[in-house]
Design a protein around this nucleic acid. Structure first.
Lengths: 346, 346
DNA sequence: CGCACTTACCCAATCGATTGGGTTGTTGGC
DNA sequence: GCCAACAACCCAATCGATTGGGTAAGTGCG
């Protein structure tokens, strides 16, 4: 790698061609397809000379020009609620890795989960002529997806699913069930759920998985034991306050559909003088790197965030290649830690 | 906004032009510059007709084509150690906002702080023809920056600084000083520093600010009280273990140059039976959203992460406009919380 | 020896926007 | 009434890569 921008000027196909005394189109064909097109385009010797010179000059094709001609930018647009949400950040890392392996670059944008922003950011991505979109902030009731589909914009969902569209998600229902089995098994009979935002399938599915399994096990969950909330610590704290405000007894276990909400809930419990993992069990979701590091390590459902991102890229590639793709739900695993490791007498 | 991709086909300048019976170049001039060039290019009436039609058809210029011609992509490349580091994620949000306001889009990539990756990602950005780079993972000893400068690649640093290059950072030296003042004021005399990675100016400056001020106050810091470490919880834990292993006494206060390291250190203290905020004070850096939410809220130096990102964009814009730019250091503020709120008798 | 095939290339149009340089038609000044 | 100075446009080249369609030289074979 000598210099990719020799002397300030960028090397073009034409430069290579004229230096070798052949036509740019020939150079293009040689450099373009590993061997398919290159085969009939030039002699082995010429091909080698071209490749050699390209390497020496540090030639890199101008994606602008190529894209203009081919109508493909090799760009994937990614929309997430916010990148400062660790969960999405990790999924994005998976995306970026997988995309790079396929020769794609990615754009990310934050929608802050606001419909208006989702629209704006989507349009902005399309204006940038991305080849396709990975949507990580889908709302269950959004008309945007249907509109995009009818406009034939290639896209897949990630993290959250919406029936009818291809998605790469965690099997959130299963995740909720795992927590129900665990808490039930530890002898808990009085539980509450910090359920997240009702427009997100992650929240809905985790909650439904938990509640349905709980009832199947013979447990009861009164309606006011399920509290919808924001996904952040503040939301978790408020939800926990609401739960603790009901009546004079408190549940012996809380399931928060998100680690941050769980952390907020732990704070609320503490300030009510309740010992996490002693008086009240708490289980979170996603197993973010913090869960295990907390003073009282948090039990959490580990979702394969990196793989969800990678899978989303595979799916989108499939869509871009015109294949029919199926939604994929990756299996989560429950990690039990101190916050829910005590047994309650039945 | 009717449709930006009407009937599957994208609207081009030529489409607009032919529909209005005028030349594409005229349309371009009208749509291009708000009024400067547009003034002499067409009558007010025509200009209005063009703008109206453009709006109706949802015309959006093809950045590929424009970029090809103008040699500017309106793309800024951003390189960070990792986006799943909350600090960088927030800076990136600042970047993306500010860039969008200026009509730029941004690419992010993770270098994992590995020199090899830094190089690779940088080249990858340049291959994408970004107009300039915002480098958030600069190493103090890196030759890469000098090389980029000699290649005349427009770039600015963010988060970490390196003398000789424009950067947008927190005033980390001041941050360290604030912590020294605080801990000294609370009566601590035996302290240790979890110093971070020695190749990062953030770590070096925060440590130097602390140590120099501490000594100026008349305190002593033996060499083995400064332990270099990774920036994550694991690194903080290990560093704390090292500190606690020295001799039979322990310091009464720890300054970790990063919240995550501080959290790791808190864990180590706990497992040594030491009460955070009671036996040992702990202060972190950055005041990430977690600091205040921890069971024992963590004192931390609040750095203006969002503004650092925004400032980096301003700087890069300056560089791109050919202006001379000065490095900017934004002032941090110390947030004292329970973890360091107790007074030690001198 | 001649003709069909290859092989190894070259030509030129094209993608969509931009821009330096025209070309009309009209108005104003003297 | 004539020329300069606009106003309002049009023309065509250009950016760099791609690609459908040549073409000339060489090879094989009957």
């Amino acid at each position: 790698m000598e210099e990719s921008t020799a002397g300030g000027r960028t090397i073009t196909l034409k430069d290579l061609a004229s230096e070798l005394g052949i036509h740019p189109s020939t150079v293009s064909r040689i450099l373009h397809s590993g061997s398919e097109v290159a085969r009939g385009a030039a002699s082995v010797a010429t091909a080698e000379r071209v490749r050699e010179l390209a390497r020496k000059r540090g030639y890199s094709p101008d994606p602008q020009a190529a894209g203009l001609r081919t109508r493909r930018t090799h760009l994937m647009g990614v929309i997430v609620p916010r990148l400062s949400d660790l969960v999405l950040a990790i999924m994005y890392e998976g995306i970026d890795e997988a995309a790079a392996e396929l020769g794609y670059s990615t754009f990310v944008m934050n929608s802050r989960d606001e419909p208006e922003e989702q629209r704006r950011k989507t349009e902005s991505m399309l204006a940038r002529r991305v080849d396709g979109l990975i949507i990580g902030d889908a709302h269950l009731d959004s008309g945007l997806l249907r509109e995009l589909a009818s406009r034939k914009v290639p896209f897949v969902l990630m993290n959250r699913r919406v029936p009818g569209f291809p998605s790469a998600t965690c099997d959130d229902v299963l995740g909720g069930e795992l927590v129900a089995d665990h808490l039930w098994g530890m002898g808990h009979r009085d539980v509450a759920v910090i359920a997240g935002e009702p427009y997100a399938s992650t929240a809905v599915d985790r909650t439904a998985g938990f509640v349905d399994r709980w009832r199947a096990l013979g447990g009861k969950i009164p309606p006011d034991a399920v509290v919808w909330s924001r996904f952040d610590t503040g939301g978790g704290r408020e939800a926990a306050e609401t739960i603790l405000a009901h009546g004079n007894s408190h549940p012996t276990a809380l399931f928060a559909v998100n680690d941050f909400a769980a952390i907020g809930a732990m704070g609320a419990l503490r300030s009510h003088g309740l010992g996490v993992g002693r008086d009240v069990a708490v289980v979170g979701f996603n197993d973010t790197s913090l869960a295990a590091e907390l003073p009282i390590p948090l039990s959490s459902v580990r979702s394969p965030m990196l793989d969800i991102g990678r899978t989303a890229v595979q799916l989108l590639k499939g869509v871009l290649d015109g294949r029919e793709v199926e939604s994929i739900r990756l299996k989560p695993v429950l990690c039990v830690r101190e916050s829910s490791a005590f047994r309650t007498p039945v």
